[in-house]
Design a protein around this nucleic acid. Structure first.
Lengths: 112, 112
DNA sequence: ACATAGTACCTTGCACTACAAGGTACTATG
DNA sequence: CATAGTACCTTGTAGTGCAAGGTACTATGT
């Protein structure tokens, strides 16, 4: 029986969760991508996410009007759903970047 | 009737939530404080937290062994519960600082 | 022709957690 | 002795990430 993870593990997970949507929007803003690509991009950036988290999240963002998708056939497998940001999505992302800066400076203040 | 808040409002809240525990540990690490002081310190740093969030969180951190408290009488009101970090709490905080750095650099990577 | 592996999409049920709202109790003041 | 101020705490609800499981399309090997 594995020992229960420490509380700080849990808190770390919380920190990651908080910025998840932000990161997903960042990834999509760079280039049109489909879900599996998003997963591997996030992994590259050291952010662990799983499918069961990503799909509902993409749906939420879409029904909020921040994302748009279009199907495209693949040469090696089932068709892919490519996501791009809508105008509202780009605006939202700019706000989130600003929020991130504020948060980062809050942390900096508290660290002193 | 107020218009419904945008999704990015929601996402911003998520971002704040994620770093809440981290920030609370940071505040307590600076100096022994009681709950109401923590609330006003966080407000100063632009982080909105309410009592109903803070108290259960302090309990969690305490039962995880990261915090310790001691009662102290006040000259102007009911007694106060002062919190300090335990050794484990200080260790946890160091880990969280490291995690924060990693996250910040992930964001930086994705922003480019 | 059929089984297997690989890719890609999506859903369900659970557990955790922040928040709104409400509650208790102590001290000082008019 | 009622009111205001301070400080602690609990309950119920809603949102959300995750583990696990499921569907479907294509390519490959036999």
């Amino acid at each position: 029986m594995a020992p229960k993870e420490s509380t700080s593990e849990n808190t770390k997970a919380q920190m990651r969760k908080g910025i998840l949507e932000f990161c997903i929007l960042l990834v999509i803003a760079r280039d049109r991508v489909y879900a599996s690509e998003i997963l591997s991009e996030l992994k590259k950036a050291d952010l662990i996410v799983v499918e069961g988290t990503l799909y509902p999240l993409l749906s939420r963002l879409r029904s909020a009007g921040l994302l748009r998708h279009s199907w495209e056939e693949s040469k090696s497998g089932p068709p892919r759903k490519y996501y791009t940001l809508t105008e509202a999505g780009r605006e939202s992302l700019e706000e989130l970047k600003a929020t991130w800066k504020v948060l980062a400076s809050s942390i900096a203040t508290l660290t002193k």
